[in-house]
């Protein structure tokens, strides 16, 4: 009975897991596949899940480790980043072109230029809303390492975005 409820809770996490996977991989297809693999692995390891701890953190962690293994195995190297044509798809864009939709696209594009570990840290804290402690547990690093990755990610992202003030002065949303 508890298993059925646990399964329900797991299934309910699919949208969030897909968002995280998309943030990591930059490809909707890869994200979907990552999510599928995450559930497959989670189900074989249900005994490792400790009731009372966050289910989403546990599954983020599985997803993240599958992703890292894929990268290490070279299976997805380069596949998640389309070649960038500087004049149309650059990460940096002139301020006047940062219309809402374009701006969000640009944010994504810049995000995927960050190193893997920084991107994961930023996704977990800024997008998935985990605390530093939770995010550091997902990534299996000390909190200090997490915060320094986070700070570097943010700095790099705002540099990649080019004109800082263009970002700050524009209404977002």
């Amino acid at each position: 009975m508890r298993d059925a409820k646990l399964e329900q809770a797991m299934v309910a996490l699919q949208p969030k897991l897909r968002r995280f996977a998309y943030g990591l991989s930059g490809s909707p297809d890869t994200a979907n596949e990552l999510v599928q693999c995450t559930y497959e692995r989670a189900l074989t390891r249900l005994d490792q899940w400790q009731p009372g701890t966050r289910l989403d953190s546990w599954m983020y962690r599985i997803l993240q480790s599958i992703w890292l293994n894929q990268i290490r195995a070279g299976k997805v190297r380069g596949a998640h980043l389309d070649p960038i044509e500087p004049d149309t798809q650059g990460c940096e864009m002139p301020a006047r072109r940062l219309e809402a939709g374009m701006m969000l696209e640009t944010v994504q594009r810049c995000m995927w230029q960050l190193p893997e570990e920084q991107r994961a840290a930023l996704m977990l804290v800024a997008v998935e809303g985990l605390s530093y402690k939770e995010a550091s547990a997902v990534l299996d690093v000390p909190v200090g390492t997490l915060t320094s990755r986070l700070a570097r990610a943010r700095m790099a992202l705002s540099e990649l975005m080019g004109d800082r003030d263009a970002v700050t002065q524009r209404e977002v949303g």
């Binding site: 949208p15 968002r19 997008v127 970002v167």
Partner: peptide, 15 residues
Amino acid sequence: EMNAALGVAFNEAMH
């Protein structure tokens, strides 16, 4: 603003 932009940018994957 960066947090908000990131949130909006990736939320589409949830839908």
